[in-house]
């Protein structure tokens, strides 16, 4: 019954969907990478994504401009990032639990606002695909890689950009220093709090954008549970990618391909209970975490608040 999956058109379809669906993982996980590199474990990505998905959708619905929608998602992400940074950096609260608080708050608020402001299922005119001239005509590869909307291209461009920022700029060096030895960085005159605030806010903005991709670049509609745990998986991808952009990109593609596979299994009506393919990414996350844990380097100050002596 899986023979249908081996049809060339289907394989190309799965790969193209996989490349596209890597976008929310890439945006959210590359953002979370900055937060974690600076020493803050932001588990609230899922809640920020949910609010990004809703605000992007709602602003597009009311103004007709998906660009304003993305802008709204970025702003909401920044505000929620500021909140997370205030609680975890300034007030030094337990970060795992703060993140769950941010998740519940974002989740509840998105559902509340959707019922209050929209209340019915409707679709918006999101971003359209932009086939890259020339490249999109290459057989197979063109469809798989070069026929997507701008958010997809942008998320792939972020891989080299974040790599450059993290490893080749002074600011990136400061971020890495703050995440490993905040005491030493502080002695050298680096403001640990400012770096951590900046990183958490950038990460959260990208998470908001990842949410907006789901409503404006993928389904063109909003539904409860539209993020479906992708924000949590993005946090896991940072571990999987060992805090490097390239590693994260590999993980994002692995997960998005599994995601695409389960979508296609449902679309093709292959006769297995739909819950099992849907389960696959979550099970894969656990397996992956088990495989990479223990033996890996991680930012030494991850999850540890920093306070100069009074």
């Amino acid at each position: 019954m899986f023979a249908q999956l081996l049809h060339p058109d289907v394989i190309i379809g799965i790969l193209a969907t996989g490349v596209r669906l890597a976008t929310p993982f890439l945006l959210a996980a590359l953002g979370e990478m900055f937060a974690q590199r600076s020493g803050v474990y932001n588990l609230g990505v899922e809640g920020v994504m949910m609010m990004g998905a809703f605000s992007g959708f709602w602003v597009t619905l009311t103004t007709g401009s998906p660009w304003l929608g993305v802008l709204a998602a970025l702003l909401i992400g920044a505000v929620m990032g500021l909140l997370m940074a205030f609680i975890s950096v300034t007030l030094q609260a337990e970060q795992g639990i703060s993140g769950i608080g941010l998740y519940m708050f974002g989740w509840g608020l998105a559902g509340f606002l959707f019922r209050l402001l929209v209340g019915y299922v409707t679709s918006v005119d999101g971003f359209h695909d932009i086939p890259l001239p020339g490249l999109s005509r290459i057989p197979v590869l063109g469809t798989v890689f070069f026929d997507h909307n701008w958010m997809v291209y942008f998320s792939y461009l972020l891989i080299p950009i974040t790599w450059y920022i993290l490893f080749k700029t002074t600011w990136g060096l400061k971020v890495r220093a703050v995440g490993v030895t905040p005491e030493a960085a502080d002695t050298l005159g680096v403001s640990v709090a400012r770096i951590r605030y900046t990183c958490v806010i950038i990460g959260s903005m990208l998470a908001g954008m990842a949410g907006a991709f789901l409503t404006l670049g993928h389904t063109n509609m909003y539904a409860d549970n539209i993020t479906a745990g992708r924000g949590f998986i993005a946090v896991a991808l940072v571990y999987f990618g060992r805090w490097t952009p390239l590693g994260i990109a590999g993980g994002a593609l692995l997960f998005s391909t599994v995601d695409a596979l389960q979508l296609w299994i449902q679309v093709l009506g292959i006769d297995i209970p739909y819950e099992f393919p849907v389960m696959a990414p979550y099970v894969l996350t656990i397996i992956v975490l088990a495989l990479v844990s223990g033996r890996i380097w991680q930012p030494a100050a991850l999850g540890r608040p920093f306070d100069r002596e009074g």
Binding site: G96, V235, Y239, I286
Partner: peptide, 8 residues
């Protein structure tokens, strides 16, 4: 093997 419990 020390797998982070929040995510699992």
């Amino acid at each position: 093997i020390g797998v982070d419990e929040t995510l699992t």
